[in-house]
Amino acid sequence: MCSNQTGRLTLPTAKYVFLLLLAVLLTLAVGHLYAFEELTALSLGLPAWLWLQLVVVGIMLVVAWLALGLVQREVA
């Protein structure tokens, strides 16, 4: 079972989801450096890759928040 009777994740499931979210975080961190490297067109004096990087960093913060919610909450 992935969740208990109260709907919360069981501990093994929470661990896997946490590690998955960490993997997503690190993939975003590394991946965007390769994916956006050629995007050098300027907007407001800054390259497109930098604006996209801000978006990625924002997404990373959201992923981190979700991941840490799994550590902080009580698990079965």
Partner: peptide, 24 residues
Amino acid sequence: GLGAFSFLAIAAVLYTLFFSTVGT
């Protein structure tokens, strides 16, 4: 160049992981 921001921004996200786990 702007790579200085790249590593600092990524680091700042990672800091939150440490603050919220080890810090707590």
